[in-house]
Design a protein around this nucleic acid. Structure first.
Length: 491
DNA sequence: TTTTGAGTTGTTCGA
DNA sequence: GTCGAACAACTCAAA
């Protein structure tokens, strides 16, 4: 019997294993036409960021290679998704379009429209879950409302059955008689013209194979020390899976199953405190998607509405923001983090919290600026996680950091980078300073600075704000917010 | 139904 | 040096 082709629409699920839409397309029986559509979403603030574009280029190349090994071809296209999908359906005679669901507000609306349009034409349109352990529309608290606190959310999720990964397709993937036209990968122009991403790829191997190697490496050792070492930015204590997860080169079901596999011999699950902590991070990713789905305005708007009135500082020339972005704040840990971000497209999580706190509380610039910068510079930029992270840092989100939690950049440096490995790597002009002043060079005696070859204000900036003053002003600003919200009017 | 306690990641101050 | 308290307000779950 003749079965029409299935269009398999790849989006943020750039893998063959554990891909529910792919598995369904194959079991439907006809030829499978894998397609990726680059949609340049106009002026949307959340169109692909620069670092993400670079990663995507390499990930698509990897996916295309993996498909080729199975006798298939990745079709690349450009333009509004609905137009491209409809054009491909009519040019290939596809009778079905399958994809894995996404949870961003724009994506949900677009997918719904496409599903309706295809249905009206008699084309089978089906979507699947491959991105999450627990899809947002399936989770609610006992009052039927979305969770807003992580711990009860995660406790509840863990009482639910955990989905198994979908097995990878075996053998060749059936090809159509004739392949539709494809845009050559370089023509998508995903790579930056000036090559500022050249520092990324000593650290990263985009694609499904790279993702699995990273997971395997992490599970072999570091996961069991994760609860302690994840806070040390110079250590290899974290999984570095975030960009792979974002692009769907590996999925949470696979991670869960792999961690459970570690318990096979002992029967104890989770196998260690580190593993438990790591799985909770997977839970935070779930929680982020839960919040984005149920509170779709949060990429721009604070979840706690009183924060709309927050007295942000003036920064008319954008100098403070620029100092932060470029790693020229005069606080070594902050500057190290921001420079690592620029060089690698990634920043260690501990340092992300510190730089975020610094932007929002020390510089009192809106978290939206930080979210936008991270969006453009992170290879793991993810609307759900980025939004949660920034609103958490600013204190305006769900389960957010209390307003009085102001990370002290010097103290954080001394606690988590006591030997200065991290700062010396990313702020090399300070490398020769002794440990005891490395995190506060302005406290060093002139002779110490001279010996280290540091001239404050020339080779390295003086602090752009004073910690104690900035902290006091931040606390005052948060207090004013409270007064404003209460309309008590007292002086 | 109402109450109570707990909740990712911190810092400072004073005893 | 170490330690506990204080620094809000609100959501959720358990009692």
């Amino acid at each position: 019997m003749h079965v029409s082709p299935t269009l398999l629409w790849f989006r943020q699920d750039l893998r063959l294993a554990d891909n529910a839409a792919l598995a369904a397309a194959i079991s439907r029986g006809g030829p499978v036409i894998p397609v990726f559509i680059l949609e340049e979403a106009g002026r949307s603030p959340w169109r692909l960021g620069g670092a993400s574009r670079s990663w995507l280029h390499h990930s698509l190349a990897a996916l295309a290679g993996a498909l080729e090994e199975r006798g298939s071809t990745l079709i690349l296209a450009q333009g509004p998704s609905q137009r491209v999908v409809e054009a491909l359906v009519s040019s290939t005679g596809a009778g079905a379009v399958y994809w894995n669901r996404r949870y961003e507000p724009e994506g949900i609306a677009r997918d719904a429209a496409i599903k309706a349009a295809l249905g009206a034409k008699g084309v089978e349109a089906k979507s699947f879950n491959s991105a999450l352990l627990f899809e947002p529309h399936t989770i609610a608290n006992k009052t039927g409302r979305p969770f807003q606190v992580f711990t009860p959310f995660w406790r509840y999720c863990q009482t639910l059955p955990m989905a198994e990964p979908v097995p990878a397709p075996r053998g060749r993937i059936a090809a159509p008689v004739r392949w539709p036209d494809s845009v050559p990968l370089p023509d998508l122009k995903l790579l930056p013209a000036r090559g500022w991403d050249r520092g990324f790829y000593p650290f990263w191997t985009p694609g499904e194979a790279g993702a699995h190697l990273r997971l395997k490496t992490f599970l072999s050792q570091a996961i069991h020390r994760y609860d302690e070492e994840r806070d040390i930015p110079s250590a290899e204590g974290v999984s570095r899976l975030s960009p792979h997860l974002h692009f769907g080169e590996v999925g949470p079901r696979q991670i869960w199953a792999a961690v459970r596999g570690l318990s096979a011999s002992s029967g104890v699950f989770p196998p260690s405190r580190g593993a438990s902590k790591f799985l909770a991070e997977v839970g935070w990713r779930e929680f982020a998607h839960h919040l984005l789905f149920h509170f779709p305005t949060t990429p721009e708007q604070p979840l706690r509405t009183e924060f709309a009135a927050f007295p942000w500082a003036e920064d008319p020339q954008g100098r403070r923001l620029q100092a932060w972005q470029r790693g020229r704040t005069g606080y070594p840990l902050i500057d190290a983090g921001m420079r690592q971000l620029w060089a690698c497209g990634w920043m260690h999580n501990r340092v992300r919290m510190v730089v975020a706190s610094f932007l929002v509380k020390h510089l009192r610039l809106s978290w939206n600026h930080g979210a936008a910068w991270f969006w453009d510079t992170l290879v793991d930029a993810d609307l759900a996680s980025n939004t949660l992270g920034w609103q958490w840092s600013a204190g305006c989100g769900a389960d957010a950091a209390p307003y009085f939690r102001v990370f002290a950049p010097v103290l954080q440096g001394e606690k988590f980078d006591p030997k200065g490995h991290y700062v010396r790597q990313w702020v090399p002009e300070l490398a020769r300073l002794p440990d005891d002043v490395l995190h506060q060079p302005w406290q060093a005696a002139p002779s110490v600075l001279a010996r280290a070859g540091v001239t404050l204000g020339e080779t390295y900036p003086r602090p752009i704000v004073d910690h104690a003053t900035a902290r006091a002003e931040a606390l005052e600003a948060f207090k004013s917010l409270r007064r404003g919200a209460g309309e008590s009017g007292d002086a």
